[in-house]
Design a protein around this nucleic acid. Structure first.
Lengths: 347, 347
DNA sequence: CTGAAAGCGCTTACAG
DNA sequence: CTGAAAGCGCTTACAG
């Protein structure tokens, strides 16, 4: 406890210890550390030496209390078993880290009670702001948080009108549908079908229909089939298309799993992708690149999404401290086409 | 903003506000909340009413400073893009939540500098304890943390002798090898091969050889092939086994990806699994159940691992506050066999 | 059972 | 540039 230079910090050394040793006030030590106020080179050196000798580290909890901020932000997601959320979490941490922010992670498993409990606890000043991802919590609870003066950013939030007044960072899925469909059109296809899980994927379908319309086309009823985003439902839809009197020459699936299912169905029926039927998905899951054939798909900008949400939140936190006015903001991030071997120019 | 009962908590209400309104001291309010000291029913009711009316929530940062604890623990992992870590993180959060602990998540991407920086920051009192997973940080930094009096638990740590003095929760991979091999022996196999990535999977190989020895067998040189845990390396090893003058009738792969690769090789050569050759893996990744045929494998107890590590850490934190002595502890969690259709009794 | 007071370890105007 | 003092919002012995 007092054995010469290096001190055991079981009983952590405090700013007072440093002040005493450097023969200054805690205020001066604080000024040296935060560099908020200039300090003479001489005392500055003495303080730094004392810090070094004592192995002093500021207690961030105390600082947090004094400053009224924690340099921590909460990320609320339904789960990270789903790789999509895992990647977003990973990138939010990176972005936060760049601004010296830490990440308090909360998983709600889509349970409104669990979500409420977590939000409630974190709201008690532990965090400076919140990023809440789709389905992670009840919108009512999130609104309550915002009304209590907390900085909140929504990330990918499926159209709840009450969410309108909160800042939101989302993905332009309508554009995803357009990009996929336009690509197929450019490959020369005219008979294009879609597998879609509605209502969640309805904007993708909107994009699909917009692109068709721009080419003077429209999909007949039997070219649209409902799926549930699973491999199996894509497989079934694929079979159904093949059984039509005039099957499509291309299929746009609302996500990669259904696209892979459709490919499986086509292959099982003795046809070839893309030779007989071209297929494009949405997501660019890791399996897409290793499929047979590798899947053309629309890549969702997860990383950009995460970064944008984090930076928007950080600006909001900053804004709150400055007392700035807050207009609600909507930011859409753009997906892009990745061409692989499941599509090709029609021959 | 000021419409009657509900008060704007932009300027958060504090314990003093409550005390004033209930005409008591902050100490009494504190006693009502923490229930540390009995309070008369009457004042208790008055205080609760005031809390309700003001919408008061205790400031956890202030409480943390006063109590010297944050009810937060740090989980340091290399990444959560890897589903193994993602699942562990998920379960640690659950376990922590049960004890009213929050989770500060840090991903180090295997960068020692990043690891050091994160540990350093979190060590400044933000967290009560640390769970550090394999490869997430330099053992030197972790030891420094422990020496500074922090509660630390290692989780799955590949044999660094310097780590010996820290508590560790690990997986018994040797048992995994034994279980897989015994299962194949019980199916009637005598010519059993192994695909292994050494050195990381050497304990699995130990288990493999132990089980064989107990059956009075030993694997010939050419029945052991090195892989790198990838699908492709399993595929290549599978081909190599099939090219032997006397191929094995069963293959134990050090992980599921290699097992799936081996199955692909066997199928491509026109043979059937399990009829001609049985295959068993390790991990039970999600693809294992959906493979053709579904893969028999050894399931790694991720959830138990996570729970055990969390509870051990919580006990350590408790222990530190009581000033208890700390013997290093090693806990091994047991994997178990999952029989699917890639193995069957020899016919 | 309740109150007065000190303390947790910082920061932040304000004097000097 | 430096010090003395108050304050952040709680908790915790200690009296009464």
């Amino acid at each position: 406890m007092n054995a010469g230079v290096s001190v055991p910090n079981i009983l952590m050394t405090t700013i007072s210890d440093v002040a005493r040793r450097a023969k200054v006030t805690t205020a001066t030590v604080s000024n040296v550390i935060t560099q908020r106020v200039p300090v003479s080179a001489k005392t500055r050196a003495r303080v730094l030496e004392a810090i070094e000798e004592l192995g002093y580290r500021p207690n961030l909890v105390a600082r947090g209390l004094a400053q009224g901020k924690t340099s921590t932000l909460a990320l609320v997601v339904p789960t990270i078993s789903n790789p999509f959320f895992a990647e977003v979490v990973e990138e939010v941490e990176r972005a936060a880290d760049r601004h010296d922010y830490q990440l308090l992670l909360s998983m709600t498993h889509q349970s409104p009670e669990e979500g409420r409990r977590h939000l409630e606890r974190m709201a008690s000043r532990w965090v400076d702001g919140f990023i809440v991802m789709d389905m992670a919590a009840d919108i009512t609870d999130v609104l309550a948080l915002a009304d209590a003066g907390k900085a909140v950013v929504l990330c990918v939030w499926n159209q709840d009108p009450r969410a309108q007044r909160l800042p939101l960072v989302d993905i332009d899925f309508r554009l995803a549908g357009e990009l996929a469909t336009r690509h197929l059109l450019e490959c020369g296809h005219r008979r294009i079908a879609m597998i879609v899980e509605e209502p969640v994927q309805w904007t993708r379908r909107q994009g699909f229909e917009t692109a068709l319309a721009q080419a003077g086309l429209a999909a007949p009823q039997e070219y649209i089939r409902q799926g549930d985003s699973s491999f199996e439902s894509g497989y079934q839809a694929g079979l159904a298309f093949l059984a039509l009197p005039q099957p499509p020459t291309a299929i746009f699936a609302g996500n990669d799993w259904m696209a892979l299912g459709a490919i499986e169905a086509i292959t099982h029926k003795g046809l070839a992708v893309p030779h007989d039927i071209a297929v494009v998905g949405v997501d660019d899951i890791s399996q897409a690149a290793h499929a047979h054939p590798p899947l053309t798909t629309i890549s969702i900008p997860k990383l950009e999404l995460a970064r944008t949400a984090t930076e928007l939140l950080l600006r909001r936190i900053q804004g709150k401290r400055m007392g700035a006015s807050e207009e609600p903001i909507k930011i859409l991030t753009n997906p892009h086409l990745i061409v692989r071997q499941s599509t090709a120019r029609i021959s």
